[in-house]
Design a protein around this nucleic acid. Structure first.
Lengths: 238, 238
DNA sequence: CGGTTGTTTGAACTGATTCAATCTGTGTGG
DNA sequence: CCACACAGATTGAATCAGTTCAAACAACCG
């Protein structure tokens, strides 16, 4: 469930500010954004947070954790269509959004009102330019995901997701290990498969010696080969 | 091939202006856009137009026809990741775009320079708001495509594409017919299948009595049932 | 301990691919 | 008008990747 917390000055903006700066925002702009009236919300994973089809008149910025946008086809099969990492945001839009929002892992999210956010962006061109770039980046990740679900086989899809995740969450490739944030069901919902098959793919990758697993933890025993089978070209992440 | 043409006043902007207005742009803004230094280019279908991985420092607006953005996985399997109809645009971005551009059918495209376009948008907030909405719309179409390739079976995917195409190209549903703009290979490239299977799906749809075919022309004999099997909810198009 | 959530495995099945051949329509040059 | 080339559509047979269903197992937590 969602537990709003009162906002203490020590806690609310400080770490989000860092994330925004890491995402390429200039410090003084990050300050303006963080100073916006808002609250920090704890979001529990795999619990309803925002349902599809309701008005999306708020801005959200991920402070920690990972959020997902999801949709489902007519018959309730779920597809995750986008991920948001710390420093990423979900911008308001007119009317209802057809996607819902859930957390992948326990996350801290700053939530503000569209009516506070929009004037800020209109007033500061640098801010608008920053979000423009952010949107383009998410866009091009979306295109890559389409290639992934449309054209790659199940092994490549999972390998690609792992490569992308490592890259986006800033894992140092010299560390050969990463705490995989996803359940197998979530990997299935991202890559358009069943969790049963995802399980088999993980087992395969391990058998092939590309990864080792210890519970949720994944150790990359052959980075370059993993990226090769994934067809992973990090260019689309800029 | 690409044949640039000299721009005659009678021809260059007039019909594009209408398309932009139809897309929701106010007339005076459409005028400003059309007045931009630019040329009108004829683009032949299924021929290289813009290759992936090169700088994309131009704006393009579709005046007639349909453009596609495509990518390919490592091994050359092509995936179409977005379509652009008359009134739609492809905006410039910093650096290289990882997608290429090809026409689906013979198209007329207005091409301008990013350096002429960007100041215009920065200067006129209404224009920037218009493009913001356009981008959000394309975004939400992208999400729906992810659901399509990730979660629907081959029949539903094709039915969905047909429904979306009719809607986006403004076919009146009372006309029960549409000139299908796509080759079966293109449908395959959009929906993530092989052309062989697309052929079988078309035959199936016809056998089920949802469509009739005369060459490229498709007659919709049961609109509502087609949309039902597609799981088509037009909300995402706004 | 019991409940919940996530992972693993097997067996049967099916939707879609692959490969290869044929067919059809359209445009081109002689 | 015919011959030829070319692009796209159609069909069949064999194969395979991924799903479905069902059951068991493991880890965690109050």
């Amino acid at each position: 469930m969602t537990t709003p917390r009162t906002r203490s000055p020590a806690d609310a903006g400080v770490s989000l500010r860092e994330k925004l700066i890491a995402a390429g925002l200039e410090p003084w702009l990050a300050d303006r954004l963080v100073a916006m009236p808002s609250k920090i919300v704890q979001v529990e994973p795999r619990r309803p947070f925002r349902e599809p089809g309701v008005a999306r008149d708020e801005v959200m910025f991920v402070r920690s954790g990972i959020l997902s946008k999801f949709k489902s086809d007519g018959s309730g099969r779920r597809q995750i269509v986008a991920l948001r990492y710390p420093g990423d945001g979900i911008l308001p839009r007119e009317g209802a959004a057809e996607y819902g929002i859930q957390a992948i892992v326990r996350s801290e999210v700053m939530v503000g009102k569209a009516e506070d956010f929009e004037p800020l962006v209109e007033e500061i061109p640098e801010l608008s330019r920053f979000f423009w770039k952010l949107v383009q980046r998410h866009n091009s990740i979306g295109y890559e995901w389409l290639v992934n679900t449309g054209r790659r086989d199940s092994t490549a899809r999972v390998a690609h997701l792992l490569s992308e995740t490592a890259e986006r969450s800033g894992i140092d490739v010299r560390h050969e290990s990463m705490l995989n944030p996803f359940t197998q069901q979530q990997v299935a919902d991202i890559t358009g498969q069943t969790s049963v098959n995802v399980n088999r793919v993980f087992a395969d990758l391990e058998r092939q010696g590309l990864i080792k697993r210890q519970g949720r933890e994944i150790i990359f025993t052959d980075w370059s080969e993993l990226r090769r089978v994934a067809g992973f070209q990090p260019g689309y992440l800029r």
